[in-house]
Simulated assay, not measured.
Amino acid sequence: MNPQSRPTGRVSLVGAGPGDPELMTRKAWARLMQAELVLVDELVDRRILAELPAHTRVLQVGKRGGCASTEQGFIHGLMIRSARQGLRVVRLKGGDPFIFGRGGEEMDALQAAGIEVEVINGLSAGLAGPSSVGIAVTDRRCAPGVALVTGHNGEGGRAPDWAALARSGLTLVIYMGVSRCAEIVAALMAGGLGADTPAAVVCAAHTPQQRQAWSSLAALPSLLAAQGLGSPAVLVIGEVAGMAAARQLLTGARDGREDRAKDPAEQELRRRAQAPCGR
């Protein structure tokens, strides 16, 4: 076939999940095996890339807060040009493309250019991270729902309404919140959320580098600093974190940190976590 007469290609926005390749869907794997070009997000686990066919072209177009990042407009243009060349393109993202993954922006750009685009969802770290340490974010015994929230201000500097979230009674799962943890905690407490509300942090969920720790809300910033916990991570705030902490304590699986047993904040967390719904 004459290359100039080759049909326009397709772009698949694919969620790679939180880390473990086995958590990806069969459809996601099928698109990866068919792809001629894969544009890879920074947080995609490298074990996934190791499974790609040798002939697949892979380009790193990642974004990380505070680091040099690929411009979003460049990514849009690259997808459009590649699809117009007839290539089968996969935009591979950590987690889910439509949960803090800019998938909506990319779909709009592709559709405006007349490019066929599909979305293949992935398991978001906001759900898989908490569950990896036993946190059921919508446990009906004490959580009427869950809010997935970004710790970074949105377009135009718009920040989440932390006071409203503090009053909501929802489990809060905060993405990209490590660098602003102290500010977020202060805003939630100013909004009425108790200083002793259970909290947890899960870093690099479902990877060999996973780490997790338990805290009270007030002690969360100092815990992150003391243990050197950083991104990628999710913060989990709410009574469900206390329930999971109780289970961890009862099984003796407390990150191997028995030296923290005398910490007053942790003793309070233990007391609240082992009562019904942390009360």
Rank of each mutant, 00 (worst) to 15 (best):
E268W: 06
K262F: 04
G278A: 07
V236C: 14
I99N: 05
S12F: 13
G126Y: 02
G278D: 11
F98G: 01
L123Q: 06
M107S: 11
E116S: 10
V133K: 03
V133Q: 04
E258V: 01
D45S: 07
I115F: 10
G9K: 04
E118M: 02
Q60Y: 15
D96S: 08
R272Y: 05
E155L: 07
T56M: 08
V146M: 13
V185R: 03
G122Y: 03
G95T: 05
L23I: 05
S12E: 09
D96N: 09
Q34I: 01
Q60E: 15
N2F: 11
S231W: 00
S179Q: 12
G242R: 02
T207R: 11
A30L: 09
Q72M: 02
I115S: 06
S222T: 09
L39F: 06
V14N: 01
M107G: 00
V137P: 02
T8Y: 05
E116M: 03
A35V: 05
A190W: 08
L188F: 08
G156S: 00
A182E: 15
A125S: 15
P53Y: 03
E118R: 03
S179D: 09
R6I: 08
G192V: 03
L235C: 10
V236M: 13
R167E: 15
D255Y: 09
Q248R: 13
S222R: 12
L170E: 05
